[in-house]
């Protein structure tokens, strides 16, 4: 989805950096790692932006930064053009009604002592407000759960049903943007497809905007309107068209590692060699250089910047794959 150059994006991340320090003590200085390093992202209303990468690439940290659940070390978060980076506690409450999140693990994201009704009323109770009558039933209808579930406890539900509750809870205030942090990663593929279909339906009927975090490039290409590929805390490629041919060797490798449900296409799998380097000891140049098949000398010396390729697509690579 293209937006006019002057349109204000509903959610904008501007040069976000987040470092974590671990292992520090009284006498020892802790080691620090950069989970997210200089990530900028503009999410236009109605977009489904997919952030894809492997574990440790910083995509979940990015989701929490965007949600203002953790503070950035540098950079800004803007919602509808307003800088919300300095807001905390009660000042964030107006934002909470418009920006919501669905979490990965449907087993631990619901309090075991809350009934589904309690879970769905929690967004209102948390802000000290009263839910409009019939809201719980309306939310259950919206996510395709039977109204009789209202009195049930999470442990009486399957993983897919719990994730529907997680989605319903995020929709309680009719938000504008929903951050989806791997909402299907702990579900069976059959249930994943159900949940994705539900999210698509809600996107169509409620005009939602999604920031979709996932490790599954195939799923992101199917579901999203725009794709951001992250590797070790940095954006390596932005694809304005989800069906485009990947330009960054890492994106290409991710695609080459995805299995296709067709036994006749086996030969195409090219597994990526090696492991993700430790985020505590990043190589000086391109973070992907040690595993890259197209690596050149300058990749190890300096870091390629994110530069425009075709249309609104960008890639951070000295030697990108030919389109």
């Amino acid at each position: 989805m293209q937006m006019p150059a002057d349109a204000v994006p509903v959610l904008e991340l501007d040069g976000l950096v987040r470092t974590f320090t671990t292992g520090g003590g009284l006498l020892r200085k802790g080691r620090s790692m950069t989970a997210v390093s200089d990530v900028s992202l503009r999410v236009a209303a109605g977009d489904i932006v997919g952030v894809v990468g492997e574990s440790g690439c910083g995509k979940s940290t990015l989701a929490r930064l965007a949600m203002r659940l953790i503070d950035p070390s540098a950079g800004r978060v803007l919602f509808e053009g307003r800088d919300v980076t300095q807001d905390h506690g009660p000042r964030l409450r107006p934002l909470r009604k418009k920006l919501q999140m669905v979490f990965q693990d449907p087993y631990s994201s619901l309090d075991p002592r809350f009934t589904l009704r309690d879970c769905l009323l929690e967004p209102f109770a948390a802000l000290g407000e009263t839910a409009p009558p019939g809201r719980v039933e309306a939310l259950l209808d919206q996510v395709g759960l039977d109204r009789s579930f209202a009195g049930a406890y999470p442990h009486q539900l399957s993983g897919g049903q719990r994730q529907r509750v997680g989605i319903a809870r995020a929709l309680a205030y009719r938000p504008e943007v929903v951050v989806l942090d791997e909402p299907t990663a702990s579900l069976d593929v059959s249930i994943q497809a159900q949940i994705i279909a539900l999210l698509q339906e809600l996107h169509r009927t409620s005009g939602l905007t999604y920031l979709f975090i996932s490790h599954d490039l195939g799923l992101v290409r199917y579901f999203c309107t725009r794709i951001v590929v992250m590797y070790l805390g940095s954006v390596v490629e932005e694809m304005a068209d989800p069906d485009a041919v990947p330009r960054h060797p890492y994106t290409a490798a991710l695609m080459g590692s995805s299995f296709v449900p067709d036994p006749t296409e086996r030969a195409q799998i090219v597994p990526l060699e090696g492991e993700i380097p430790s985020p505590f000891a990043l190589p000086p140049g391109c973070p992907f250089a040690p595993r890259c098949a197209r690596v050149q000398d300058r990749c190890r010396a300096s870091r390629p910047a994110l530069t425009q390729t075709t249309g609104a697509s960008k890639v951070a690579c000295f030697n990108p794959v030919e389109a």
Binding site: Q161, I191, A193, I196, A197, G218, L219, Y222, P261, D262
Partner: peptide, 23 residues
């Protein structure tokens, strides 16, 4: 057939992935 159809593939039309209803 439904299990195979649960996996998104390149070129699939949006909304064509339905999953298997129920559990």
């Amino acid at each position: 057939e439904a299990l195979i159809g649960c996996i998104p593939r390149d070129g699939m039309a949006p909304g064509s992935l339905r999953g298997i209803p129920g559990t």
